[in-house]
């Protein structure tokens, strides 16, 4: 096993274990903090795939922003006293449904994985992806780039609307 595989499995274990804690933890705060390690592990996988810009974006936006927003979202709720914030106990019917759906998705993914023709590139990976992203973003994908700014505008106006004072 080479160093690449070792690092990959290290990050994979971090992702799977912390994601399991996110789902199974009874305390929603523990779930939120466990999500940090999931995001971090995904950033590590991005680095392994030579996607350095995406990895930095993952850390900056997901760990630095989205996670803070989730934790604020928890603290904004009225039932903050810890005891009441628990993921609801699920009945047998829900567990059966969830199990069947998970099984179907898992089988589909394994089927796709086995039947896909994986191409391996002969080319050496780029030193850094940021130059290409910058060039493409402001030439071929300019419209999508500007539409993204409108989406962000909607987000900021929506937040201002939610947080407004009741008059």
């Amino acid at each position: 096993m080479d160093i690449f595989s070792i690092v990959f499995y290290l990050f994979a274990v971090i992702i799977v274990v912390s994601a399991a804690i996110v789902v199974m933890s009874k305390n929603i705060m523990y779930s939120a903090f466990s999500l940090l390690f999931t995001f971090f592990g995904v950033a590590g996988i991005y680095v392994l795939l030579n996607a350095d810009f995406i990895a930095v974006t993952q850390i900056m936006i997901y760990i630095g922003g989205i996670l803070i927003l989730i934790i604020f979202g928890v603290m904004l709720t009225s039932r903050i006293t810890g005891v009441d914030i628990k993921s609801g106990t699920t009945g047998k019917v829900q567990i059966a449904f969830a199990g069947v759906i998970s099984l179907v998705i898992a089988i589909t993914l394994i089927f796709l994985f086995a039947n896909t023709k994986w191409f391996t590139s002969e080319l050496k990976p780029h030193q850094s992806t940021i130059e290409d992203i910058g060039k493409e973003l402001l030439t071929n994908y300019l419209l999508a780039f500007e539409v993204a700014s409108v989406l962000l505008l909607i987000a900021i106006i929506g937040a201002a609307f939610i947080a407004r004072r009741k008059s």
């Binding site: 922003g65 989205i66 803070i68 927003l69 604020f72 979202g73 904004l76 987000a155 947080a163």
Partner: peptide, 18 residues
């Protein structure tokens, strides 16, 4: 309970972070 103003600040932070 925290003031909803925190949410607005966090949201603005994410937008300008992006």
């Amino acid at each position: 309970r925290f003031s909803v103003k925190f949410y607005l600040v966090a949201m603005s932070f994410i937008v300008f972070d992006i």
